[in-house]
Design a protein around this nucleic acid. Structure first.
Lengths: 227, 227
DNA sequence: TCCATTACCTACTCACGAGTAAGACTACTC
DNA sequence: GAGTAGTCTTACTCGTGAGTAGGTAATGGA
């Protein structure tokens, strides 16, 4: 007769097949990080709706009520993910951009940092980008907010590039261009996923050429190069 | 005592509050169109998962089993929407592009047609674009397929623009640029939703300037104009 | 060694929504 | 006017998964 009663205690699991032996009694802070890590992974894999809280708790190596206790309901958890990952991404990019550099160089550094971050943090990016659609209201604002922040950063960068001290460019004027640029980057990233033979370097260089030189110049063989 | 028994017959509904008096016994073809119209509307409003079959049937003015009888399960219905709307969009654009024109002019017409289509068919566009994320497997292929078709169209256009008859450009080379361009358009469109004061004309012109002249040129005051 | 606190669990409930069974009604044909 | 094909409905089932009730057990301080 197979062990029926109480075979659930993974501390004594003899098979070694249990995915993650749960470490016991860790401080809240540590657990919260583990939960967020797991949530990002699972949300990236399935998207918000298909992601099951049960799976997140599994991956985190903890039971479901802990998630609710520490980070709240599913949508709150999702918002927490967005917040953390958005901050990380924006942080990475703004660190790469030195405002003392020439405008084109700034743009180049920014783009490059963007591509590198995404390359190194696929799940993070997927959660931020692939989920932008979920329109179920509660966290929609949170999602568009991070996007706006990113957009503003780019718009500012473009405004610095386009204006002089005598004749500054309206930040607003730059907004549609910023939108286009961010979207172009995102889309190229998607395309990259199916063509991994390219490097982050090569792709960000192409994007830089497209937005800085324009296709008209490129057709004639002119290229942008980092100084 | 309020009417409890059999108050459901909307043919005799006296209140006038019934949303849509159901027209009765229409041929299959007509119903299918109505269902697809309703589905596009509801999918656009809520996204795939949040959209309820019950609501679609309501909006279509028909009962739920009819949807299953005519167009199959939810995912099949969704695929049918994607297919129809993608065809309409691509049709619109390719009609606008006359391959006899100069390459930049072709590009301009294409962009313009794109912006106009989306302006006139918000729901259609939303379903195609905002849902690209849903990774739940069944119809993912359908979704990426239409995107690939769009991308190929653009890549071809760019290849024609960039190559000469002696030295043709590899279609493949154009792919990352096509991706960037499509993404830029999509993103600008999103931005547009929050800034309706712009016209389709103004925005497509900006995008054209960005991708054809490049930001470097634009900073110096050079602009692209339609001939 | 007792108590309070904090970490942690199993085993539920309960709503929602996809999908269906079973048949009614209409219109057309022969 | 009986049969048949196609339209259309109500009223269900039933799985799934978010969220919770109600506890146990480890830890650290008094």
């Amino acid at each position: 007769m197979p062990r029926v009663q109480d075979a659930r205690d993974n501390r004594t699991d003899p098979s070694g097949t249990t995915a993650k032996p749960r470490s016991r009694r860790l401080p809240r802070q540590v657990r919260e990080r583990q939960i967020l890590d797991a949530a990002v992974k699972v949300f990236a894999k399935y998207g918000y709706h298909e992601a099951a809280m049960d799976e997140i708790s599994d991956v985190a190596g903890i039971s479901k009520p802990m998630i609710y206790a520490y980070l709240g309901a599913k949508d709150e958890l999702f918002v927490a993910c967005i917040r953390r990952e958005a901050n990380r991404l924006i942080e990475s990019i703004s660190q790469a951009v030195d405002t003392d550099l020439k405008p084109d160089e700034q743009l180049w550094r920014g783009l490059h940092a963007f591509f590198e971050y995404v390359n190194d943090n696929r799940d993070s990016w997927t959660v931020l980008h692939r989920q932008a659609s979920v329109q179920g209201q509660p966290f929609t604002s949170e999602l568009s907010e991070w996007r706006d922040r990113a957009m503003d950063m780019v718009a500012e960068l473009l405004a610095r590039a386009g204006g002089s001290s005598e004749q500054p460019v309206q930040l607003e004027q730059m907004q549609p261009f910023a939108a286009a640029l961010v979207g172009a980057g995102e889309s190229m990233l998607d395309w990259w996923a199916d063509h991994p033979e390219y490097t982050a370097d090569a792709l960000s260089m192409r994007l830089m050429n497209l937005v800085w030189m324009g296709f008209g110049d490129m057709v004639q063989g002119r290229r942008w190069k980092p100084s």
